[in-house]
């Protein structure tokens, strides 16, 4: 596996979410993802970025172009220093919400990615890693 190219973008406002979406779209296309896969991944990025902003009080996203043999892909790592998630299992349940949303953000985005991982410590913050491969 080649050394990943990493860039960081801030997530501090809903304008930032729009910028993250556009950047993810551009990079997903560059990685050779088809239009449906691009759309799925951008949507997942939008969901997680909004969680980072709304529940984590803002944070950053790291974007990595990844390559494994002939397979190219894109990995995103969202980090915040918010209150963290008390129960990840519960957070991943369809329809569960603490913020008055539809409760589909996390559980739904998991279905839109090839890789999905959450690490969270209550009081310290949350890191969500998602990836989509060609």
């Amino acid at each position: 596996m080649n050394a990943p190219v990493t860039d960081t973008m801030p997530i501090q406002s809903s304008d930032d979410i729009v910028r993250v979406r556009q950047e993810v779209r551009r990079r997903a296309a560059a990685a050779g993802l088809g239009i449906v896969d691009q759309t799925k991944f951008v949507t997942a990025a939008s969901e997680i970025a909004r969680n980072t902003l709304d529940y984590g009080g803002g944070g950053i996203v790291r974007l990595e172009a990844v390559q494994d043999g002939a397979r190219k892909g894109l990995r995103l790592i969202f980090e915040d220093h918010g209150p963290g998630i008390a129960s990840i299992d519960l957070a991943l349940t369809d329809g569960y919400t603490t913020g008055g949303g539809l409760g589909l953000g996390l559980s739904g985005s998991r279905r839109l990615c090839n890789e999905f991982a959450i690490e969270s410590k209550p009081g310290e913050g949350t890191r969500v890693t998602i990836a989509r491969w060609k």
Binding site: T39, D94, L102
Partner: peptide
Amino acid sequence: MRPAVAITLVELGL
């Protein structure tokens, strides 16, 4: 609604 958007929304559960 575009096809890719529709597929994604269904996958998302909306």
